[in-house]
Write a protein that binds this DNA or RNA. Structure first.
Length: 422
RNA sequence: GGAGACGUCGCAUAGUCCGGUCGAGUGCACCACCCUGCUAAGGUGGAGUCCCCGUAAGGGGACCGCGGGUUCAAAUCCCGCCGUCUCCGCCA
């Protein structure tokens, strides 16, 4: 949730952000009213409670014979307190709902508008050209006996796949390459739970507009995570963490599960969009003043990976209307996919400022000794989908694929992936 | 799966049977000062988190795993949930 103090003192800032997102600025006024109502209700309850507490002490000290009369008086007060407590609780719930409906205040400079209103920051690397008809990633994957969609569907249904042989090695290689770099950069590796409790899923904001995307196990009331960000953010929930030595950085390794509920018929071929994949995710807890700088650092680490894998890509500053509710700014790095003649998202990095931390109650101690919410940021360092860009970019006429040099140490020194005769 | 124990202010604990004098004692750790002069001891004081009112000083409220209930009043009684531990069984 956003900072209630900002809401109260600078509602115009919040309204502008809502407008940039294409969402209603009226939510801001509604939240302000709910805030005023909540505070009035709290005050009413607290003064009654103070009276009751004082009265309770006189009852306790009173001699036995006077107690009965005092207790009778106290009963009236108790009923009032109970009612006031209930209405302050309701007012608080209404306020929480009202402020929770407001998305994070976007960072200055984020383009307004929707999906197509992103700002292109840069294009890096030569787009590959071929003197033969390039094959798409699935065709190559099948030639290499690396990707098996048919058996994935047989065993688990549509949008499930097997990675086999060099396919499996390629995925582990990318993930391990990312992990090695993350460790070099000071990240602590973390293999995370992929089933989480409702409050963690809620706290990270994934049960909002995109709740349909999330697998739920009703028998145990647990959610399957679509990214390790969920567990990584929940890791320090309800804690006061120490940032005096700099950011806390984690590299989360996990399988991710997504229902892809709203994307029937989209990207049905191959492993671009699947229900289950693996991902290595960077996650930083930082002092809010350092958040934008950390965002640039996460982006730089991502770009370093793409560059060393020899991929052509562009970086976009995602428009406000296309941000999740927690993100104040998001950069996507999209790789060129030759057979689609398009850039496809390989990584995404979001600066959630204090929005997520406030909901999960993650704080640090400031220099003055007070507590304050931290900022959280996340960014992809490797996922299954990268295989698409790697196979297509580095393919050769005979169906073989050259392994980028930087990746070779992570796939047992393989230099070229050769088609398998069936 | 069966049986039982436990969850208190950083850590360790007292308090819970017999509800009010307990937002809560003690030890350790911590911070400030004093004393002393040495790799330590002693003394005094301070210190939790969150919210509301207030420019501030200050005042008020909530918090004893979480959520309900009983009561004028709950750390203490009742119920549910979560978690930890022990034993038995079962399966790796």
């Amino acid at each position: 949730m956003i900072d209630p103090v900002l809401l109260r003192e600078s509602p115009d800032v919040v309204k502008r952000s809502q407008e940039a997102r294409g969402e209603s600025p009226d939510l801001v006024d509604a939240a302000l009213e709910a805030d005023a109502a909540r505070r009035a209700a709290i005050s009413a309850f607290e003064s009654l409670r103070a009276e009751q507490n004082a009265f309770g002490k006189t009852v306790a000290k009173a001699p036995k014979e006077e107690k009965a009369a005092l207790v009778a008086q106290a009963q009236e007060l108790a009923a009032q307190v109970k009612a006031a407590n209930a209405s302050s609780g309701e007012a608080d719930e209404r306020f929480t709902a009202a402020i929770g409906a407001i998305g994070n205040v976007v960072v200055d400079g984020v383009p307004a508008g929707g999906e197509d209103d992103f700002v292109l920051l840069r294009e890096v690397g030569e787009r590959p050209t071929f003197d033969f008809e390039p094959r798409d990633h699935l065709e190559i994957g099948e030639l290499l006996d690396a990707i098996d969609m048919a058996r994935g569907a047989k065993v688990s249904g549509a949008r499930f796949h097997f990675l086999k042989g060099v396919g499996a090695r390629l995925e582990l290689g990318i993930m391990n390459m990312g992990l090695a770099r993350a460790i070099d950069a000071g990240f602590t590796p973390l293999i995370t739970p992929t089933l989480v409790r409702p409050e963690i899923m809620q706290g990270t904001g994934f049960l909002g507009a995109h709740a349909e995307e999330v697998y739920h196990l009703p028998a145990d009331d647990l959610y399957l995570t679509g990214t390790s960000e969920v567990a990584l953010a929940g890791y320090h929930a309800d804690e006061i963490i120490d940032l005096s030595a700099g950011p806390l950085r984690y590299a989360g390794w996990s399988t991710c599960y997504r229902r892809e509920a709203g994307s029937h018929g989209k990207d049905t071929r191959g492993i671009i969009r699947v229900h289950q994949f693996d991902k290595l995710e960077m996650f930083s807890y930082v002092d809010p003043v350092d958040a934008e700088a950390e965002h640039e650092r996460l982006l730089a680490w991502q770009e370093g990976m793409l560059q060393d894998l020899g991929l052509s890509y562009r970086v976009i500053d995602v428009a406000a209307g296309d941000l999740g509710s927690s993100a104040a700014r998001k950069f996507d790095v999209e790789a060129w996919v030759p057979t689609q003649g398009a850039y496809r998202e390989l990584t995404s990095t979001s600066n959630c400022t204090t929005y997520q931390a406030r909901r999960l109650d993650i704080r640090h101690r400031t220099e003055s000794g007070r507590t304050a919410p931290v900022a959280t940021l996340n960014g992809t360092l490797a996922t299954t989908r990268w295989i698409v860009a790697i196979l297509e970019t580095h393919q050769q006429a005979d169906g073989s694929v050259v392994v980028p040099e930087a990746l070779r140490p992570y796939v047992g020194g393989l230099e070229v992936l050769e088609p398998v005769a069936k």
